[in-house]
Computed example of a mutant assay.
Amino acid sequence: MTTRSVLDLIKAGEQPVTRIRVLIGESDDPERRGDKKVVAFSDCRYYCPDWATLEKCVAAIKDSDDRLRARPEELMLWDWDSTWLQLDNPTNPTEGGGTIFLGVAWYSQEFFDDRAGAWFGYMHQRIYKQIGVPLEEISVQHFLTAEKAAWKPELETATAQ
């Protein structure tokens, strides 16, 4: 298998994918995380079919972040990661939609276990409908950190022969 660089792709006429950071989250702002340890991470992707839906989605995430930031520190059991936007039509952004990439950092295993499925609960489904994001255009994947994962690789030691 041959690996091609971004420069090889551009030279071949392929357009690189550009993602624009639209909101700063905990991974790009060390003060937000402080000394909390991430135990899990959620990768959330929302396809917005048009510019108006993109605007509403980003505004809803910002509003949610503002409410989250207003909580006392002891209730900060999770936080948003930075939010990114990938446009369908970068040369004319208002003509078309795009994908919002959002992460969630979880600081409590118990809270993650209890709330990881909230993204598809009744309240969130209502929000998606108000924004205009079709349910079939939402994907969420959860990942445990290496320290919390049940499976741990066996470390092989080199033996002198």
Rank of each mutant, 00 (worst) to 15 (best):
M1E: 12
S5D: 06
L7Q: 08
D8I: 03
L9H: 14
L9P: 02
K11E: 08
A12Y: 01
G13M: 04
G13N: 00
E14L: 09
Q15A: 06
Q15S: 04
I24W: 00
S27K: 08
R32F: 13
K36H: 11
K37M: 04
V39Y: 01
S42D: 13
C44M: 15
C44K: 14
R45H: 15
W51Q: 01
K56R: 15
K56P: 05
V58K: 08
A59T: 10
A60P: 02
A60I: 03
A60S: 10
K62Y: 11
P72N: 01
E73S: 11
L77V: 03
W78Q: 04
D79W: 13
W80D: 00
W80F: 15
D81S: 14
D81I: 03
T83Y: 07
W84P: 14
Q86P: 02
D88V: 07
P90A: 03
T91V: 12
T91E: 15
P93L: 12
T94M: 09
G96P: 05
G96H: 10
G98S: 05
G103V: 00
G103R: 08
V104S: 01
Y107R: 04
F112D: 02
F120Q: 15
F120L: 13
H124S: 08
R126L: 08
I127Q: 07
Y128C: 01
V133G: 07
E136R: 13
E137Q: 15
I138P: 06
V140S: 03
T145Y: 01
A146P: 07
K148E: 10
A149P: 09
A150H: 01
P153R: 06
E156D: 07
E156G: 01
T157N: 02
T159H: 09
T159Y: 03
